[in-house]
């Protein structure tokens, strides 16, 4: 019954709180970059609560059940991914699943957006969802290569083992680890569909793509899922490249620094780049990024 605790406390509550706080940081920094004041601290929460009170509108011609089921699928995916990560962070022996499980669970939110977009029966949503799918295929290749680097250093897929092996020297300290970290950050930029990889949503062009027909609680759940991912993905990188979270004394500040650092990089990238086209994104991820990732893997295999 331990997993119930992890699920309720960490997977759900802590992830939601941290996700909302992180999305506030993201929005505040963005506002400062653009010489604006930015939202108050509680704004992300207020946005979600407000959406829950709004009317649910279902487009005519949509596959109704799938349309309403999709947000739940994404939410369940991110909650379980987060629970697996937390369980392994706090349970030294390893619990529930390993790296592969986490990677696969973390693709479920993208899957849910695609299915939801398809189900809405709107051509704009179909286009956006197909772009999301292509984006997944594009970043998956370098992402797999990048996460292989910690696996090579730890010699195991176990998240507990990966954390344990970095007790003395973290993966990001090796040259291969640094390259892999850079690649992984680019990939989670795309996983979060942030500028310059917000191609699936492209507000100015296909009006938020897969989300165009969503409103009310369903949209609220999608937005909440996105916020939770904004916490879970950097957390995943912390586990892989920085040896997980540290809670005592100076270690805590280090963790905080690492976490805020990753989020800040994501935010800065999104504020300083224009959106690319989908074919450019595929070329970018399968070209230079994959080459970098391959270099990282080769270096790691040779112990550098």
């Amino acid at each position: 019954m331990m997993f119930l605790l992890y699920f309720l406390v960490f997977g759900l509550v802590v992830t939601i709180v941290m996700g909302l706080v992180t999305s506030w940081i993201d929005r505040k920094v963005t506002a400062r970059v653009q010489y604006r004041v930015g939202p108050p601290f509680l704004q992300p929460l207020i946005d979600i609560v407000k959406l829950l009170g709004k009317e649910t509108v279902i487009p005519a011609g949509a596959a109704r059940e799938m349309f309403l089921f999709a947000p739940l699928l994404g939410f369940a995916g991110v909650v379980s991914a987060s629970t697996v990560l937390w369980a392994n962070q706090l349970h030294a022996a390893g619990f529930m699943g390993d790296l592969i499980v986490a990677v696969y669970l973390l693709t479920i939110p993208s899957l849910s957006i695609i299915l939801g977009g398809f189900a809405s029966g709107n051509p704009l949503a179909s286009l956006g969802a197909s772009r999301e799918m292509k984006l997944v295929v594009a970043y998956e290749l370098p992402f797999i290569l990048a996460i292989l680097v910690p696996v090579i250093w730890a010699g195991s897929f176990g998240l507990g083992d990966i954390i344990e092996s970095q007790k003395s020297f973290m993966t990001a300290g090796h040259i291969s680890g640094m390259i892999a970290l850079a690649v992984a950050i680019l990939c989670i930029q795309a996983k979060l569909a942030m500028v310059p990889f917000d191609i699936p949503e492209a507000e100015t062009e296909i009006v938020e793509g897969p989300l165009v027909e969503y409103s009310g609680p369903a949209l609220g759940i999608f937005k909440l899922t996105r916020s939770m991912l904004l916490f879970t993905l950097p957390f995943f990188l912390l586990v892989l490249f920085f040896g997980g979270l540290r809670f005592s004394g100076p270690g805590f500040f280090r963790t905080l620094l690492e976490y805020v650092g990753i989020v800040a990089i994501l935010t800065v990238i999104r504020n300083t780049n224009p959106r690319v086209r989908i074919d450019q994104a595929v070329r970018f991820f399968w070209g230079p990024v994959t080459i970098l990732a391959v270099i990282a893997v080769v270096l790691a295999l040779n112990g550098i």
């Binding site: 759900l12 829950l52 009170g53 709004k54 009317e55 649910t56 509108v57 279902i58 487009p59 005519a60 011609g61 949509a62 309403l68 947000p71 739940l72 939410f75 369940a76 909650v79 809405s120 029966g121 709107n122 051509p123 704009l124 009006v207 165009v212 027909e213 009310g216 609680p217 369903a218 609220g220 759940i221």
Partner: peptide, 21 residues
């Protein structure tokens, strides 16, 4: 958990409209 959010929301009086293009 997600379903509870739905139930707390306005799912029951969902309205059907033409898709926005």
């Amino acid at each position: 958990a997600g379903y509870l959010v739905y139930m707390a929301g306005t799912l029951k009086n969902a309205r059907e409209v033409a898709p926005f293009v």
